[in-house]
């Protein structure tokens, strides 16, 4: 499981840069334990929803509850862990 999460984190870094058009950032710049929303990357609620759409499309994992969303999007690691758990 931990290996799977580590792989997912690397995959998500690339997908996040692409989805959110973070053109001045490389995967190496992203700290998976750092606060995702309102942190250094300048990610806000619209970006989170864009990620929600991407995650549903790519991993068939739905995050349509605000309370769940706040917990899941705390860091990139919490997001990867959630996807790994819910992925079919």
């Amino acid at each position: 499981m931990e290996e799977q999460i580590a792989g997912l984190i690397e995959e998500l870094k690339i997908k996040m840069i692409e989805t959110l058009n973070l053109t001045d950032i490389t995967p190496g710049d992203i700290d998976e334990d750092a606060r995702l929303v309102g942190g250094d990357l300048g990610i806000d609620s619209i970006d989170v929803l864009e990620m929600v759409m991407m995650i549903e499309k790519e991993y068939s994992v739905m995050i349509d509850n605000k309370d769940v969303g706040i917990r899941v999007f705390e860091t990139l690691k919490t997001l990867a862990t959630y996807i790994a758990k819910k992925k079919k």
């Binding site: 619209i46 970006d47 929803l49 864009e50 759409m53 549903e56 499309k57």
Partner: peptide
């Protein structure tokens, strides 16, 4: 393209 399943919230806003 997604048969009315997926959209972009960023594009909507």
């Amino acid at each position: 393209e997604s048969d009315e399943q997926f959209t972009s919230p960023t594009d909507f806003v």
